[in-house]
């Protein structure tokens, strides 16, 4: 039997969603604006999108690009970030480059990349890659930098070579921080996925959204926003499960009750 407090905690996310939808519904009814459908109208439009083969192909194409961009970015960024964290010269070389790219909205680079690589998958995947890699590099870098020197010395005394220390000590020790970067990267992958499709409309979830906007199908627009939001929540929840499992050793031991409860 769950205690009322546990029950409330479990139900909280659902209550938050229902609350948001209720506010939406109410605001929409009060404002009576054609371009602001009610929550119920938007939810009704979801089955139409998900039932449509064309739309599903579009959404899957988006997800494929996102997975590819995210995967390659993580595979490249973690080793680079770790190397930067452990070698001053590598950091001195890459830091200024990254500092230049960091504040630039990756979507702003798209027109140029489109000129070079066309409007196809490569361009959009590259933009996702750029969006994901920076936070992952940054967090891997910070994680690697923070690894206790004495831990590496202990490994060296056991006979681990510098390369072994990087893979077998720096990588696991920095993993909590790396995964924080990956989590940010995952959200950014979703954002850049949609924005890239906004600029280069051809296929994808963003394509559906912005075409519907052009045609004034506002219930479809809002339905797509709900779908993208739901995808974001799902990815994050799955990632969080994996993350918690991988770095169980670093999590706080007890789930402390919040002081105001």
């Amino acid at each position: 039997m769950m205690s009322p407090a546990t029950l409330l905690r479990r139900a909280a996310p659902v209550l938050a969603c229902i609350g948001l939808l209720a506010v939406w519904q109410f605001a929409s009814l009060v404002l009576k604006n054609d371009s602001f459908p009610t929550a119920i109208e938007a939810i009704r439009a979801i089955p139409d999108i998900l039932g449509d083969k064309e739309s599903l192909i579009n959404i899957l194409a988006s997800l494929r690009r996102m997975a590819l961009g995210f995967g390659v970015a993580v595979l490249v960024s973690i080793p680079l970030g770790l190397l930067m964290g452990r070698s001053r010269s590598v950091a001195a070389f890459f830091n200024p480059l990254l500092m230049v790219i960091y504040p630039v909205p990756k979507a702003a680079l798209m027109p140029i990349i489109m000129l070079w690589l066309g409007v196809g998958d490569v361009t959009k995947t590259l933009v996702i890659f750029l969006g994901v890699s920076l936070p992952v590099i940054y967090h891997s870098f910070e994680g690697a930098k923070a690894v206790e020197e004495k831990m590496l010395w202990s490994g060296a005394a056991m006979g681990l070579s510098p390369a072994q220390r990087l893979v077998r000590i720096v990588l696991p020790a920095a993993l909590p921080e790396i995964l924080t970067g990956c989590r940010t990267g995952l959200v950014l992958a979703l954002i850049t996925m949609i924005t890239s499709e906004m600029i280069a409309r051809q296929s994808g979830a963003g394509n559906i959204l912005f075409n519907a906007l052009d045609m004034g199908q506002y219930d479809t627009v809002f339905a797509m926003i709900i779908i993208v939001g739901a995808m974001g929540i799902c990815f994050d929840a799955i990632f969080e499960r994996v993350r918690a499992r991988l770095v169980r050793w670093s999590e706080p031991q007890f789930d402390l009750p919040l002081s105001f409860s």
């Binding site: 206790e148 010395w153 202990s154 060296a156 005394a157 006979g159 020790a173 050793w249 670093s250």
Partner: peptide, 19 residues
């Protein structure tokens, strides 16, 4: 350089927290 013939024990413990 370091080697397994000389084993350190540090004030900071320096254990591998993931093990």
């Amino acid at each position: 350089g370091p080697g397994p013939d000389r084993g350190p024990v540090f004030q900071e413990f320096a254990l591998f927290p993931w093990k």
